[in-house]
Design a protein around this nucleic acid. Structure first.
Lengths: 141, 141
DNA sequence: GTCCACGTTTAGACTTATTCTAAATACAGA
DNA sequence: TCTGTATTTAGAATAAGTCTAAACGTGGAC
């Protein structure tokens, strides 16, 4: 895995430092859509040196800019990070707060339905509801 | 208009104080999807007394809780307010940042397409792109 | 009309998330 | 090895929002 991460960063133009590697590795290995602070808490012990929050924010911003991960907003004012870069949307379980990925195929119709008036660059759908029959998809690590 | 606002607040269980009236009036009269601070800046001179930011936040939260306005998130971490409570989504002009309301009819198909696996309580779509042929809809005041 | 209770507002302190800054560090290439 | 550049660090600074305690305003009981 480590090797993959290193390559992933390199091919996206992000120099693979130890700090960036553990952060990217953590994001790639979870489906929990963590906040910046959750990333910090999760990886700070995985390095031989102390880790600064500034590095976490710098790295997250760099990874977003490089297209390695994306930002997700499900609650007003809280930013989460998602290494799943496939075309997908989000389902928020309103009981638990879990964020579940929804593949985009079924929703791509939206672009067509918007018509000629708007040139759509991208769109994102956040859906709130309950999972029928308990947990499904991926909600933790 | 003032009379309408007073009634609107009352019927939603929000006591219509002068502060709440000018804030609600401002939100009802704009399509600019302002942030809390933009609301504060816009209404602070419209009262004979000084206005506290705390009152703006209290009022916005009360109006959201009462269902008079809704929160909108178009940029990671920034909360905006929208008095348009009709079923609609948002189009963000990626050149200007303007937020334009998109009526929901054309997109309601989404719920159907999600199938039986998820029980949808609500969903929100934010679309990023460019308006074909210049401004359309409502982008300011 | 006066008084009281209670909800509202105010200013400013506080919290939380994020960015900035300046110094220390690491490391690739001459 | 030396040096320049990018990265990381700790902590200060900023921004958005919440909390607190005191002051205020208003409707109902008298």
């Amino acid at each position: 895995m480590k090797h993959n991460v290193e390559e992933l960063l390199s091919t996206h133009g992000v120099k693979p430092t130890p700090q960036r590697m553990v952060i990217a590795e953590y994001l790639l290995g979870t489906h929990s859509h963590p906040t910046a602070d959750e990333v910090f808490q999760a990886v700070k012990t995985k390095l031989p040196v102390s880790l600064s929050r500034a590095t976490v924010y710098n790295t997250l911003n760099a990874l977003v800019a490089a297209g390695v991960v994306q930002e997700v907003t499900t609650e007003a004012g809280r930013v989460r990070y998602d290494a799943n870069m496939s075309d997908h949307h989000h389902f928020v379980d309103i009981e638990t707060g879990d964020v579940i990925d929804i593949p985009a195929e079924t929703l791509n119709q939206i672009k067509l339905e918007l018509g000629d008036k708007y040139k759509v660059r991208s769109f994102h759908v956040t859906i709130f509801g309950e999972v029928v029959g308990g947990k499904a998809g991926n909600t933790g690590e």
